[in-house]
Amino acid sequence: MIIRENNIKVENFSQEFILEIDGKKDLFKDAVFFDLEHYLYKKPICIGVFGCCYYDSNDNELKVTQYMIEGKKDALPILDMAKNYFKEMYEKYNKRYIVTFSGNNDFTVIDYLFDKNKVDYNIDDYYKKIDLQREYEKLMGANIGLKNLEKIFDIEREGELISGSNLSKTFCKVMKDFDYMNRMPEEKKQRILLYNEQDVVSLFQIYIDWKKFLKKEVE
């Protein structure tokens, strides 16, 4: 399994632009920002990459953690590591919210795999979910994808975009061929990890700049 941790400096941001949830602007300090890359075939098969970050106000940094499977043997351990990450964030760092974008798919996958593999953990028992896609729909009355929302927020990604279908095909091969990851170029592995990292970092950036770029249209 590949374990990747990274600290990303956060530029100064204004309190006036932060997304309010239940009239509160500071919930992002008590949140983890979460995104999965996964493989499904009729039903969820495995998590390919587990990605999360949280904001450290002392260092003014995002602390990013990622787990990426390298073969079928990692399919169960990555679930245990995901569970332990959520437990540590809750117990040690007092996190109480999970921020996603269209998170239903990710939660459906991880909940199904937890249950199937008898991993005793229910995310809903500990965390309240905040879905930025739903918040956008409530405000603007329309649906939007993450990449289009990033354009509105002037978020520029490093490297090329990767489609969900291509990622799914990659993890299908990983699950079926024990040596596939050994033959995969290091550049491709890092590209997948960077793509997932930028997903979770974008969630934070959108959250804190929410009112800077989004205003409800008044007729």
Rank of each mutant, 00 (worst) to 15 (best):
L19P: 06
D125K: 15
Y67D: 04
E187W: 06
I130K: 03
Y90S: 04
F34Q: 08
L113E: 01
N84C: 14
N12E: 10
W210Y: 11
R157N: 08
G23P: 08
D209A: 08
K25T: 07
E150N: 04
E197Q: 15
M175F: 09
I78L: 12
Y207C: 08
V200N: 12
C53D: 00
D56R: 00
K151W: 02
L194Y: 03
N196H: 06
D179I: 05
I8E: 07
V49C: 01
D131E: 11
Y39H: 15
K118R: 15
K83H: 09
K42S: 14
N122V: 12
M175V: 14
Y112F: 11
E217Q: 10
Y97G: 06
D35Q: 04
L79E: 12
N58T: 12
M81R: 13
K173W: 03
N182C: 05
L203W: 13
L40V: 05
G51S: 10
F107N: 12
E61Y: 11
E186Q: 14
L36H: 00
K211E: 13
Q190N: 15
K128Q: 10
L214A: 05
L161C: 10
I152R: 03
R191I: 03
E137V: 09
G159H: 02
I192Y: 14
L40P: 00
L161P: 03
E61K: 14
